[in-house]
Simulated scan of single mutants.
Amino acid sequence: MSSLKIQITKNENKKEKVPADQLLFGRTFTDHMFIADYTDGVGWHDYRIVPYQPITLDPSATIFHYGQTVFEGMKAYLAEDGVVRLFRPEENMKRLNISCDRLSMPKIDEDHAIEALKQLIEVDKEWIPAEPGTSLYIRPFMIATEAHLGVSAALTYSFIIIMSPVGSYYKEGIHPVKILVENEYVRAVAGGTGTAKTAGNYASGLKAQEVADREGYSQVLWLDGIERKYIEEVGSMNVFFKIDGEVVTPSLNGSILDGITRKSIIQLLKHWNVPVTERKVSMEEIREAYLNGKLDEAFGTGTAAVISPIGELRWKGELFYVNNGETGELSSKLYETLTGIQKGNLLDPFGWVVEIKE
């Protein structure tokens, strides 16, 4: 039994469940949420699970004015055997603390955070969809709550976990997306907050995404903020390219998020003895590989989609059709393997999966 004491207040007005085939990402939320508060000099306190509800903050709360907030994205899966599984939750909580450090926010106790999550899932277990491709999306986040307009790190914070049942990311099966390479706007630079999961990183990308949407592209491919030539991320995902049999992905350079799916993909490829390299990758290299018939596949990786194949790239007016716009063999194999491990349908040789047992 855990020594962590969490006060649980059950929701007496439970919401009606949304059918799995009608679930939209991040629109439906479970009946409960977890909250813990932090006070400078005291530490974390008042661990509690309460009915899902609005948050009340002072208008001068630091989060509104100076953006001290970090978050994570993870999932819980309900398999055919009835066991609920988390995928590498320790990595999420470790990364959350890295983000906290960059934003001058207090670190959480990672073990306590995972235990709190497990208890929250137990309370709302009935919300986890069981249909193929579905899962329970989990959003742990921290906000600065001190009522203070001085430009300094806040003295009080709240750590909150909310959960949302989500349907299959690919309603009609995994399919490639069209990507617009961004040449005007910059997402992050080394030394900035690019390695942290913080709201400002995503807000700064919305303008470029609007342009991509208008031109019929699903995501933006970000280039480095200095030379505007080296590839960093695609939308909110890490990105991989298979060039002449070798898989390459941009190396972590201080402005690229250390994705947990990215890390898992690299480990899987090495396990399969597929050549995989982390290094600088320029758009010019991708162009040359395409023109020489050596650009075999490209795909993004992230929690929501797991694997998102790239079928088309547009850079400076040129169009590159990857694998004839079709999902590649390696992309499919990675998707099927990783989702199989997450769901408990395939053997987990890496110890990635954490089972939540009653």
Rank of each mutant, 00 (worst) to 15 (best):
125 K>S: 10
110 E>V: 13
68 Q>L: 08
120 L>H: 01
136 L>E: 01
131 E>G: 04
87 F>E: 01
67 G>S: 14
130 A>M: 11
150 G>H: 04
68 Q>H: 05
75 K>P: 10
131 E>R: 13
103 L>G: 02
96 L>Q: 04
105 M>H: 10
139 R>N: 11
79 A>E: 05
110 E>K: 13
171 K>A: 09
148 H>R: 14
67 G>H: 05
172 E>P: 11
152 S>V: 15
81 D>Q: 07
135 S>M: 05
98 I>A: 06
119 Q>V: 02
140 P>R: 09
70 V>R: 03
152 S>G: 14
89 P>A: 04
128 I>Q: 07
74 M>T: 12
170 Y>L: 06
149 L>R: 06
83 V>Q: 05
97 N>P: 07
93 M>D: 04
70 V>C: 07
87 F>V: 03
97 N>Q: 10
156 T>M: 12
98 I>D: 04
81 D>N: 09
80 E>R: 14
143 I>L: 08
123 V>W: 00
149 L>H: 12
100 C>V: 01
85 R>W: 04
170 Y>V: 13
143 I>R: 02
87 F>N: 05
103 L>A: 01
159 F>K: 04
120 L>E: 01
99 S>H: 01
120 L>R: 01
120 L>P: 00
91 E>A: 15
79 A>V: 03
132 P>W: 09
155 L>V: 14
126 E>N: 10
115 E>N: 12
166 V>E: 00
119 Q>P: 08
124 D>I: 03
155 L>T: 15
114 I>L: 08
95 R>T: 04
153 A>L: 13
76 A>I: 02
72 E>M: 13
107 K>V: 08
126 E>C: 12
120 L>G: 00
157 Y>E: 05
105 M>T: 04
151 V>K: 08
124 D>P: 01
146 E>N: 09
115 E>P: 02
106 P>L: 08
127 W>M: 04
99 S>A: 14
158 S>I: 14
142 M>F: 07
136 L>T: 01
